[in-house]
Amino acid sequence: MNHSPASRNSQENTPPPRILTLQIDGQDLSGRADETILEIARQNKIHIPTLCRLDGLSGHGGCRLCLVEISGQNRPVPACLTYPQEGMVISTASQRLQDYRRKILELLFSERNHVCAVCVSNGHCELQELAVELGLSHVRYEYLHPRLEVDGSHARFIRDPNRCVLCLRCVRVCAEVEGAHTWDVMGRGISSRVITDLNQAWGSSQSCTACGKCVQVCPTGALSEKGTSVAEMIKHRHFLPQLLAMRTNRRE
């Protein structure tokens, strides 16, 4: 896992960042060499869809929804992890990229059991919102319908792997912000799972501080608060920028 983005510039006496010129979707722009293509696009109100990315956490590059094309390179790259170079010509919304993004979403929907109608996060889910944003009307792949146990062993929270998209925000926020590293990943590819401690019931975890940060950053209904019913789980993410800002201020 990479170190936190906040630490990139925290050393003292670093020279001011280099400013580069580049082009995104036909617009001539300038941006700092130490900011990702995604950050520069956002500053210029160019929207690139993202899922695993969350401001305040390290980059992961897992979901691939933020793929962009760079002139002269055949392979698209994730905007959330790619830094600009002088004169780069970037395109964010070609037909090919939109097809890829829709396919990624379709694979996510078909891989687990995202039954939106009966999900605690219905109406407040980033996966569901992306389907609307990318105009996904149906899923062309066969649904896999894996059989996955819900873990209700924790006193306050529920883990429902049926809704997990493996964004690893829970893993990152727990390790990088809470410092507990309760969450991790087990298995490979399609059989990857996020687990607590040594793949044990969440309620039996010795390292979990029950802070709930993982629940709040989880984009779907995979992690939720106990006692919430369909559509009732509304996540509160503002704690993360606030907390990080407070910590930076204290350091200065």
């Binding site: 929907f109 059991n113 039954v115 939106c116 109608a117 149906h138 899923v139 319908h145 059989r147 996955l148």
Partner: peptide
Amino acid sequence: VALGDCAVTANVPAMRNAF
């Protein structure tokens, strides 16, 4: 026209597919 989630995704009825 596939009208509604069950027609479009198989939705709740398909929850039995895991068994």
